[in-house]
Amino acid sequence: MKILVCIKQVPDLESRFKPNASNTWFDEADLAYRMNEYDEYAVEQAVQLREECGDSSDLTVLSIGPDRVVEAIKKALAMGCDRAVHIQDQAVSSRDPWQIASIISAYAREHKFDLIFTGMQSQDRGSAQVGAMLAELLGVSCATTVVGFSCKDNVVTAKRELEGGVKGVMRMKTPALVTCQLGLNIPRYPTLPNIMKAKKKEIIALPVADLLKEESLAKTTSFHPPAKKGGGLLVEGDIADQVDKVLALLKEKTAVLR
């Protein structure tokens, strides 16, 4: 079984975001990066499948971006991926989902993967497009927003999460793609021995120009904070003062303190 997992590196979302010079995305200076949360579930599921299938299987992790994304790739290798593909792209943040899906499909088409895992969306862009677009470009079956997964005899059973906690169960034959939702599994922490082992694993670097043949279909024309809608009262300062202020407000504005 040949397995691919696609990951994205995203900034820590507790950061403050400032627009970049062209006002189309955030300024990358001073931001700390990590693996997109949804992709951690994708890597974990791919590694579990890799373990189930044993040595007849092979798991590649792929990420597009500048050199910093190698950090996220190394984490995926330490979690148990066999090898990595780093598609080097300095301009990754200006690509639209269509271009990202096109780049990955150009790579994946040649390698004929049986199963592809992606996150259901990225935490920073949140478009939820790339996985399903990739499946469509490759002409493989696809289940999105998956919170339950098993694969036996080349048949995938996937549990999709619907609104209000209802789930939809579906089956499809490989080759297939699933986009992973929060809660699918509990992603493992890489252990020290596995981090050491990962250092010896191969990271294949490919320039994006070899794979990108498509123009973007949509452009970002502005990046800005949301308009403040009046908003609430900000209580800052010393903890004891904050407690007193909050108690006074709760007494005044709610009927719950008796």
């Binding site: 975001f17 935490q123 970002t220 949301p226």
Partner: peptide
């Protein structure tokens, strides 16, 4: 975008 912290015009 950015988990609801920012907005984009597309």
């Amino acid at each position: 975008c950015c988990n609801g912290k920012m907005r984009r015009i597309v």
